[in-house]
Computed example of a mutant assay.
Amino acid sequence: MNAIERTLPLIDVPALDARLQAAPPLEIIAAALDAFPGRVAAVSSFGTESAVLLHMISQVDKATPVLFLDTGHLFEETLTYRDTLAESLGLTNVQTFSPDPIALAARDAERALWSENPDACCAVRKVEPLARALAPYAAWINGRKRYQATTRTAIPFVELDGTRVKFNPLAAFGRDDLLAYMEAHHLPRHPLEKHGFASIGCMPCTTRVQPGEDPRAGRWRGKAKTECGIHFGDGI
Rank of each mutant, 00 (worst) to 15 (best):
P99E: 11
P188A: 07
I236E: 12
H73W: 15
A198V: 00
L8P: 06
F68Q: 03
G233W: 12
S44N: 10
L69H: 07
D70P: 10
R208S: 06
A51L: 12
A217E: 14
Y181W: 15
F173A: 01
A133P: 11
W114M: 12
H55K: 14
P215I: 00
T71S: 13
V52Y: 06
N117Y: 09
P204S: 05
C205K: 09
C121R: 10
L26N: 02
H195P: 01
A23E: 11
I102T: 00
R6A: 15
I141K: 02
I200Y: 10
G212K: 08
P136C: 03
W114N: 04
A86V: 02
V209P: 05
V66S: 07
V13W: 04
P9A: 01
A112K: 15
P9M: 03
A180N: 03
C205F: 13
R189M: 14
G229Q: 13
A217W: 11
N2G: 08
V13S: 00
T80I: 01
P24C: 04
D234W: 07
S199M: 13
L74F: 12
E5V: 00
C228V: 01
D177R: 08
H195Q: 13
K62A: 15
H186N: 06
V52W: 10
Y181T: 00
H190E: 12
I102G: 06
T226G: 03
R146W: 09
L91Q: 09
R6F: 08
E213P: 09
G196V: 01
L16R: 03
L178S: 00
S115H: 05
K166A: 06
P24T: 00
F36L: 07
H231P: 11
D17E: 05
